[in-house]
Simulated assay, not measured.
Amino acid sequence: MRRTLLVVHHTPSPLTRELLEAVLSGARDPEISGVDVRSVPALGATIPDVLGADGFLFGTPANFGYMSGALKHFFDTVYYPCLDAVAGKPYSAWIHGNNDTVGAGRALESIAAGWGLAQVFGTVHLAEGGRDARERCYELGGTVAAGLSD
């Protein structure tokens, strides 16, 4: 049985886009089988996207110590309609910010806890880009996808 990993992200800058690509590369590693990876921008993600997913990855920049407005809008839109359908499903997240990603992480983890999601990889907090950040994002994507694999 194939499973779906839904990657909901807000990646407005070249750097956040680079981190998304690393996450997707890890999730689509050739050694991982039976997982369809769907990447959907936060402003385009819908209730059916969430209901059709077996696991989640969320990506956002930290804006003023909080997740992006686009990712917040996604959660505002889908939270209650999906409340009873996602409990126990795995998730993780990555957050990029120049100085304060902690508030964004706390908010995202609070929403996930309210949904009853199971965090399977600690939230990746990134202050910079570069090779190390890409490797951490690759590992994040690969770990969450492998957990859904056959």
Rank of each mutant, 00 (worst) to 15 (best):
L24F: 00
R28F: 00
S13W: 04
W115N: 11
P61C: 03
F75G: 04
V144D: 03
G147V: 10
D36G: 09
A22R: 01
L117C: 08
A118Y: 14
D132L: 14
L117S: 09
S25Y: 02
V35M: 04
S149Y: 05
G88S: 12
E128R: 15
G52I: 06
H96W: 15
L83S: 13
P30M: 05
Y91F: 15
S92C: 04
T123P: 06
T77F: 07
V40N: 00
E128C: 13
L108A: 07
D49S: 02
A104F: 09
T4C: 06
R134C: 15
G34N: 07
D84K: 15
G122P: 14
V86I: 13
K89G: 13
R17Q: 13
P48Q: 09
Y79C: 04
G129D: 09
S92T: 07
P61D: 02
F75V: 03
P90E: 08
L15A: 07
R131W: 11
H9N: 05
P90T: 05
A118L: 15
S39M: 05
R28A: 06
T101E: 13
K89F: 13
P12I: 01
N99V: 15
I111E: 06
L5F: 07
L140R: 04
E18H: 08
G122E: 14
H96E: 13
L108K: 07
A118G: 10
P41C: 04
I47A: 08
W115Q: 14
G97A: 11
W94E: 02
H10V: 00
V7L: 02
A62Y: 03
C137F: 03
L43Q: 11
P12K: 05
G130S: 10
A112P: 08
R17F: 02
H73A: 13
A127F: 15
R28T: 09
G142I: 01
